[in-house]
Design a protein around this nucleic acid. Sequence first.
DNA 1: GCATATTGCTGACACGATTCAGCATGTGGT
DNA 2: ACCACATGCTGAATCGTGTCAGCAATATGC
Lengths: 336, 336
Amino acid sequence: MTRRRSATLRDVATSAGVSRTTASYILNGRADEMRIASATVAKVQAAVADLGYRPNRSARSLRTQRTATVGLISDQIAGEQYGSSMLTGASVAARELDHLVVMGESGGDPDLERLLIEEMLERDVDGVVYATRTARAIQLPRGLRGVRSVLLNCEDPREQLASVVPDDEGGGRAAAAVLLAAGIEDVVVVGEDPALDATAGPRRMAGIRAELATRGIEVADHVACDWSVPDGFEAASQWLAGGGRAAGLICMNDRLAMGVYQALAEAGLRVPEDVSLVSFDGSSLADWLRPAATTVELPFADLGALAVRRLLDPEDPGGTVSVPMTVRHGGSVRPR
Amino acid sequence: MTRRRSATLRDVATSAGVSRTTASYILNGRADEMRIASATVAKVQAAVADLGYRPNRSARSLRTQRTATVGLISDQIAGEQYGSSMLTGASVAARELDHLVVMGESGGDPDLERLLIEEMLERDVDGVVYATRTARAIQLPRGLRGVRSVLLNCEDPREQLASVVPDDEGGGRAAAAVLLAAGIEDVVVVGEDPALDATAGPRRMAGIRAELATRGIEVADHVACDWSVPDGFEAASQWLAGGGRAAGLICMNDRLAMGVYQALAEAGLRVPEDVSLVSFDGSSLADWLRPAATTVELPFADLGALAVRRLLDPEDPGGTVSVPMTVRHGGSVRPR
DNA sequence: GCATATTGCTGACACGATTCAGCATGTGGT
DNA sequence: ACCACATGCTGAATCGTGTCAGCAATATGC
């Protein structure tokens, strides 16, 4: 780090002809409280501008135990296709509150996770956001007990913690509502949650069921498969080969939708002429399909931003906040 | 930050019955150099383990001017689909060298960029990685002059700086070589660089030309369009409608390839029976196509990791390092 | 037996900020 | 003339570490 040896508070004080104490009070906005003459304030401010003074954060942190830095621990969100927007959201929100984000990815390894948490606490981060790639139930890592923290895209059912998640149930209702509004009552769902602790699937499913129930309808069929393109293709192909047909399909995510598009195309079925389709996630992949898929957006950036804002808000009441998912219309739904 | 008031060096020293100085030397691995009796070393280590001592980083930084932290400034890499793997790579490499990553995204705003750089320097990061979403020529931000830094996925042609970029020209040669090896000599390239300062396109193109030249061949045609799915679809559709045909297509990235697949399908042409196709990036999108596209991988994680390693290596000689791009074979190329 | 090295350790200062307690000086009330 | 009080500032301690210079005790050389 070659960098001009920067001015210290002492330099400012000397240059302005006051004590370090006085300069410090002024710089921390305590001038009024300390009844400092406005002429003095002006002198100090001039010295600051003149010397290009910037406080040394390490020194300040040593005294105050605050670093204006938040930690963001995740299993995998950085390398992830779309979830990485949570990082952007978090980073932007942190900046707005004069903080920076220190990130660490555990890759799912609990030992590494412990290490990263320790490293962050050593560095006196002002709080930690604990994020997961997929929405699910987790257990708060031991190292974060008693540490100011917010869960992002996950919840700990055992503890009463601040946590920020997407409103998957509302999203499920919205998806079903799109099909109902198009006059479609024959709805098949593609995709089942692979992991036991995953919350997105069950909640979306509950929302879909609830919305259909308002018309006295039930889900016509549920095609089970993992949430990936090839699995979607395989499962949908088999379903179609077995005579499966439906006016409306709901895919648990956009990747599945891509696989389903492929299967439909090979079976000679067209979207939306023969089948209407709605999916989840709101990734750009949905836009790239032909026609673009109507998809219920996961507000990743908002989730990340909200997590940081709650972390840094001393008034935050805690508890889970569900962020709404909104429908982005493509051309994959056609009214009957 | 509610956290147990942790043990300090003084506590350790008292508990072990030695001076702070001695304890400090031992903890910094200078026991031998300072000829400290092994019995004393053992006593101190026991005290450390007993008290769960962890050094206070702020205090240490104040003395040493080092924070065991590196800054990572980018325009957009976090929110980006695949480039975000650079973050993962950087984070992992940093951890291996006992550092953490502080990230900041400017979103391309120079003012915000300046601010982020200032914030990081205030926090005494040990160095800064300056990354861009797309490979291109840049001008080193003023605030980083004289600061230890490494450019990631970009270069400053005016300055002799350490920088880590993909070997796009080698990638271009590799792409062409795949087609040549399949006996295809009729090669059309899809995609032209949209931005003036972008380096990926021209370099890939140069590589393709060079490889073809070894057989005395030239690129048969160049379909100009932006590097996105819809643009790829539009451009390829028009080209096909105008009678364009080729045995081999090289797409400048995987998104373009997806658009081209769509256009080919609508024109009734099949990959790889009628047309062989190679693309760039190595994103998962290439795997999702049917058949999976043969693609020249952009080693994002390696790039990020290497940038951090070079940043933290005092012996690093500087200059540009090009990381090889390797071919990932899908089913989109068929020998003639 | 004395000068000199070596061994093993410590005292004290510095890093750059925050903050408590207190010290002059002026001002108003009685 | 004296006390009380507000005004405007400062000295000194503190946060937890790193490190230079030096000190006492023992070993070594001749």
